[in-house]
């Protein structure tokens, strides 16, 4: 796949410069703003590679959604807040958690092994070849909802578990303050 050198050096330069700013800026909020530019530059590189779907998702998910939450959290919490101490949990709970973690991991490996066979679109992945098979979004979504449906659904379960965990953590602290 071709990429124009001008575009690549422009976006790569922006990405590197902003990554350095992320590390060297003193204020965490400024770092976070620089990180958004890094993601935007990545999206630019993807768009240059004619991977428009990945570029759009990069902006939508990383720059648009995740970074907003990052900044939200940074602004609300002071940086020297100690990490959550959850205390000791029952050994049975620990065993169950360990079991489910291993089970989920095994399921992931199994699902990926089972679904990964052959290629849908045979290379070279030129712009014309991708366009002929219906464009980026069509190819990716077809793969996601047919061949990779199991890993896809497992990922959503993992995310759901993350959400439930986050809410449980937040509610737990609220309860303590209430007492």
């Amino acid at each position: 796949m071709d990429i124009s050198p001008v575009g690549f050096y422009l976006f790569a330069g922006v990405a590197i410069a902003c990554s350095l700013l992320v590390v060297f800026k003193k204020s965490p909020v400024s770092s976070a703003f620089s990180l958004i530019l890094v993601f935007a530059a990545f999206a630019g590189i993807y768009a240059n590679l004619a991977a428009h779907l990945v570029a759009a998702l990069q902006v939508l998910v990383y720059a648009g959604a995740i970074m907003v939450l990052f900044i939200f959290v940074i602004m609300l919490l002071s940086a020297d807040e100690p990490s959550f101490d959850m205390g000791r949990s029952h050994p049975l709970v620990k065993a169950l958690v360990g079991f489910f973690c291993v089970a989920l991991f095994v399921m992931f490996v199994w699902a990926l092994k089972k679904s990964d066979h052959g290629q849908v679109l045979v290379g070279p992945y030129s712009v014309a070849a991708v366009a002929a098979s219906g464009g980026n979004s069509k190819v990716v979504s077809q793969l996601m909802f047919t061949r990779y449906i199991l890993p896809f659904e497992l990922t959503s379960i993992l995310l759901l578990a993350g959400i439930v965990g986050a809410i449980a953590l937040a509610k737990r602290n609220l309860g303590k303050e209430g007492k």
Binding site: A56, V59, N136, S137
Partner: peptide
């Protein structure tokens, strides 16, 4: 754009 709708959503999210 091939991803027009996603493009609009992603830019408005900014």
């Amino acid at each position: 754009l091939n991803v027009g709708l996603l493009y609009i959503l992603s830019v408005t999210s900014l």
